[in-house]
Amino acid sequence: MSTAAPTLPAVSPTADGALRLADWGLIRAEGADAATFLHSQLTQDVKSLQPGQARLAGYCSAKGRLLASFVVWCESAETLWLACSADLLAPTLKRLNMFVLRAKCKLSDASAERVLWGTAGASAAGLLGQAGVWTSVSSPEGTLVRLPDGAGLPRALWCRAADAAAPALPALDAGSWAWLEVHSGVARVVAATVEQFVPQMVNLELVGGVNFQKGCYPGQEVVARSQYRGTLKRRAVLFDSAAALNVGQEIFHDADPGQPAGLVALAAPRPDGGSSALVEVKLAALDSGTLHAGAADGPVLARGALPYALPQEAA
């Protein structure tokens, strides 16, 4: 499946260094029931998470729509950390706390005590050593969580004390970090996309964010039904454009200008100009014609390559 739009020139990524991630926030979960409680709320198996391990997870409404997405890692049997978009931290924390009830679990905003840095390229490789994806590595300087690579470059979240000095690494440009995040193929839910997607619509299960063997959680029946009944009709696809693209922007097909064919889930500036974006889109819209940002006569989108195959294309 492909659109008729030409691809933009390939970019050779050179990003390296570390960046304070102002658009990420951090939740601490503590207590004897912390893992069990989170297991009951998220799309991921949290009960089996051990120190040194991290996982991707979604938090859904009862209708199976993503309210937030997390990078979760285990510090100890009674302490877990959840990194999410900063603009969703307060409402997500409030909603989760509504369901704690008698569970021995305390959830709190830890953003004032710990800060998240993003590190990529040779700097990340040097810090991570042989650590694999979704491994957490702790040291006196903080905890590193290896994320999926972006455009072939290693990436990691680095959770450090808020009063610690900045890492002695090159400064990483925010646009470069965001572009690598887009090219990792892992969509992060932000305020502009809350309740827009069932997990599979942004490929969450393809990047390890959904466990279909675990017990119930909010929206679980909808997520399971989307997986096992019929063919999924919408997926996240990587696109480039010579124009700026924005999260939450609607995408239109030239043959059906009256209704949107998709939504930008994550976007970033290309190093050579223009934008790259993860776009949730109707798969039928990829068969022919062209996709455009904002309107059917808006900037054309050129399809790029995800770091993994979509199921329909792998068959």
Score class of each variant (00 low, 15 high):
residue 8 L to R: 05
residue 16 D to R: 15
residue 17 G to N: 13
residue 18 A to S: 15
residue 23 D to P: 10
residue 25 G to V: 11
residue 35 A to S: 13
residue 35 A to G: 05
residue 36 T to N: 11
residue 42 L to Y: 01
residue 50 Q to I: 08
residue 61 S to N: 07
residue 64 G to V: 14
residue 69 S to M: 04
residue 70 F to N: 13
residue 73 W to A: 10
residue 78 E to S: 13
residue 81 W to T: 10
residue 81 W to Y: 14
residue 82 L to R: 06
residue 86 A to P: 04
residue 88 L to T: 11
residue 93 L to F: 07
residue 95 R to E: 09
residue 98 M to F: 10
residue 100 V to N: 06
residue 101 L to D: 00
residue 103 A to G: 10
residue 110 A to F: 02
residue 112 A to S: 15
residue 113 E to R: 15
residue 122 A to F: 01
residue 126 G to H: 09
residue 131 A to K: 05
residue 133 V to T: 14
residue 134 W to G: 00
residue 136 S to D: 05
residue 140 P to R: 13
residue 144 L to D: 00
residue 155 R to A: 07
residue 156 A to R: 06
residue 157 L to G: 03
residue 160 R to C: 07
residue 164 A to V: 10
residue 166 A to W: 09
residue 167 P to T: 08
residue 168 A to F: 08
residue 171 A to T: 15
residue 172 L to T: 05
residue 176 S to G: 01
residue 184 S to V: 04
residue 191 A to N: 11
residue 196 Q to Y: 01
residue 203 N to L: 00
residue 204 L to K: 00
residue 205 E to M: 00
residue 209 G to C: 01
residue 213 Q to P: 00
residue 216 C to D: 07
residue 223 V to P: 03
residue 223 V to Q: 05
residue 237 V to Q: 08
residue 239 F to H: 10
residue 240 D to Y: 11
residue 240 D to V: 07
residue 244 A to C: 08
residue 248 G to V: 14
residue 255 A to P: 01
residue 256 D to I: 06
residue 256 D to V: 12
residue 259 Q to H: 07
residue 263 L to K: 07
residue 275 S to G: 12
residue 285 A to Y: 06
residue 288 S to W: 04
residue 289 G to F: 11
residue 296 A to H: 14
residue 298 G to Y: 13
residue 305 A to F: 01
residue 306 L to R: 12
residue 312 Q to Y: 14
residue 314 A to E: 14
